[in-house]
Design a protein around this nucleic acid. Structure first.
Lengths: 231, 231
DNA sequence: TGGAAGTTTTTTGTTGACAACATGCTCGAA
DNA sequence: TTCGAGCATGTTGTCAACAAAAAACTTCCA
């Protein structure tokens, strides 16, 4: 007799390895800044917190190190990676290259219906800007970028993108700190939407690349002058 | 008294964690095809082989999984990732995007002397082609690509590139299987070199992107028709 | 003979303990 | 007081053993 009857259709009975849950949770804690940048990661403390032993925790830390979120110094413990301005600049540079490619692929492969939905996202962004709703704009903007990645139809690209973005997420909400930069962002997105609908591959790629580079530069500049607090 | 006197100036006395050595070794075994594609990874066998316990081995496997070289199925063990033609195609697509960016940055930032060295690599490739020396051509070609990445001066880009390339390395030597493709490869490299020296950013990017995509496509096509063995 | 239930064997996931290393503290001598 | 040697403490790296799951095998019955 099978020991347990389980909800057959959706619920899959397979306990995920602990280290996966732990890694996911830690990832969230890092982007949340529950674990702030540079903070030391206390293994034994986290173990009693999660009620697990050190092995799965350490396995999770190795994964996070491979993702660039955690740094491990031999015999001296782990800490949340600190992302300096230079490194952030390089991250955005690579991201702009990735998203350029995504926009080009998207141009060639996306079906008309998807682009319609994309246009609606653009409308949401315009609306949020008109209403001065930063949080809503930010959310729609992220969805738009994500959608371009998805429509590119390349899993490797999506994975690469996700890994890089996860290292910038903590600082990303600062991209539209200034109103002028915000306005520019809206216009760039508008141009991108137009290029996609016109199936202008080169233009779409260039536009998105410039947008990412510009947003990144705004963040990096902001980070480099320590006096102006983001408000 | 300090227990041991050590060579002070260069030798640094810090034992690297075991899992790092193990990961590096496994990486080599996978690209070597000592561990062939899809083969099951026997933990206990490797443990007695390396004379270590399972903990560092498993930590190494987690890292390799994050790099995409190993797949782990919960409760069913690990095996060397199999790279299907579709996935390989996507890998090369992303690589072409990365190398396009690298070529552009290289154009803008490389000093004249580095480009001189690059030209010498080009000469080596032309020579190898004239002498029908595939192995020498392959080596010089790889150096050239690597050099473009280095001259781009972006560590994130270099890391991303390295991770993607490591997943293609097993198949890469097949790029110049046919003589006609080989000839085309030489010409593309020649065009790249010219574009770099002329500081033609757009041209350099486009040329390298096309070259990577073309080489990748040659490999993928080769992989897709199962009758023709690579010779 | 074929197949299903039950049992043994093998393999994977997790734990707690131990060893190695780094850090902080105490104490004594210059 | 200041500096360094030696000890104490805590943290990290590794191991061997246990628990749980999957795979392989046996046995029994139709």
């Amino acid at each position: 007799m099978t020991t347990t009857i389980i909800d057959s259709n959706t619920q899959r009975f397979r306990r995920r390895p602990l280290h996966e849950d732990v890694a996911e949770y830690l990832r969230e804690m890092i982007t949340n800044e529950t674990l702030p940048e540079g903070s030391h990661i206390d293994e034994s403390a986290l173990c009693v917190n999660f009620d697990i032993s050190r092995t799965p925790l350490r396995e999770a830390l190795k994964v996070l190190q491979a993702e660039g979120l955690v740094s491990i110094e031999p015999n001296r413990g782990s800490h949340v990676s600190i992302t300096k301005a230079d490194e952030l600049e390089q991250l955005f540079e690579v991201l702009s290259g990735i998203e350029r490619l995504a926009a080009e692929l998207c141009c060639q492969q996306a079906d008309a219906n998807s682009l319609k939905i994309f246009s609606r996202l653009q409308a949401q962004m315009e609306n949020a800007f008109a209403n001065n709703d930063r949080s809503k704009y930010f959310s729609a903007c992220q969805s738009a970028h994500q959608m371009v990645i998805q429509l590119a139809g390349n899993k490797i690209l999506a994975t690469t993108h996700r890994l890089l973005v996860s290292r910038t997420r903590r600082t990303r909400f600062r991209a539209i700190a200034s109103k002028s930069r915000w306005k520019q962002s809206v216009e760039e997105h508008r141009a991108l939407t137009a290029a996609l609908i016109n199936r202008d591959t080169q233009q779409a790629g260039r536009t998105l690349a410039n947008h990412v580079r510009g947003s990144g530069q705004a963040i990096v500049d902001h980070l480099r002058k320590p006096n102006s607090a983001p408000k």
